[in-house]
Amino acid sequence: MIPEFEKFKGFKAKSMPKEELLAPGHRACQGCGEVLALRMVMKALGKDVIVCNATGCMEIITSPYPHTAWNVPWIHVAFENAAAVASGVESARKVLKRKKKIPKKHVDILAVGGDGATGDIGLQWISGAMERGHDFLYVCLDNEAYMNTGVQRSGCTPYGAMTTTSPPGKKSFGQVTWKKNIPAIMVAHNIPYVATASPAYFLDLMNKVKKAALVKGPAYVHIFSPCPTGWGSAGERSIEFARLAVETKVFPLYEVIEGRYIMSRKIKKAKPVTEYLKGQRRFRHLDEAHIDYIQKRVDAEYEKLLRLSEMT
């Protein structure tokens, strides 16, 4: 087990950190599930953190000069390289501490990016940073498409979803590929901590982020982040969809601690995927056959996870 976890008792709904590390006045859309997830991430981490942000929604909505929503040190360099920037921050602090140029106090280093920055364009940079073993955490805020540029498909866009570059038509039903499994790729790097989380389960999310920060070495948290603008869903239902994704097994919550899969929430009686799909314009065009396929594949993927958790 991870010794750093022993002292951590977990967050409680009644005693949540009051401090907001992200200020209001940011430019996120109404009902943005991503900035809400980010707010929870920051609450879990507290103020002793340096944030390296990839280009994307969270970067632009929090930093239109001369306004910043950040109450913590924050740097944005480019789209694909947040993990490499974080590697640099971590290396600098290591040597500067050794040379007694900065206080010894631990400061978390957070790299954060969307699903495109993480799973597509930035995969190599993240892989490199994970493989080198830097002491940092990477948080992917997955809203399942390139929302910042106007809802284009990414490798993390789910099967069947309509985006501006996976439009359904006479010869297409939307996204033709199954969602890329980024957490599994991170697990393959043999890093000590990987987890998935959802803002609907905010204590679980915050505990996982905190554990990712506590663990020595690289850690990865993949957070489901509803996007009303990109999904064509009602803003007030963002948390509901985040919850439905878990309850339908579409987005299972689990941890992988030193290679061991642990289900955070076993779904005994799953809701049908239609519960999740309906109410989102991106899935509206799907016919029964496609929905049937999604249901079967979701069940199969979940079974795979369960087997992994039993095996490891």
């Binding site: 340096i50 390296c52 740097i75 360099v77 480019a78 694909e80 390289n81 490499a84 920037v85 974080a86 590697s87 640099g88 921050v89 971590e90 290396s91 600098a92 602090r93 500067l96 140029k101 900065i102 190599q124 940079w125 892989s127 490199g128 493989e131 080198r132």
Partner: peptide
């Protein structure tokens, strides 16, 4: 690092951290 792009990105982070 795993590429020159990462090298320069890492440089940015390290120098920005002092």
């Amino acid at each position: 690092v795993e590429s020159e792009h990462a090298a320069m990105s890492c440089c940015c982070g390290a120098a920005a951290a002092g």
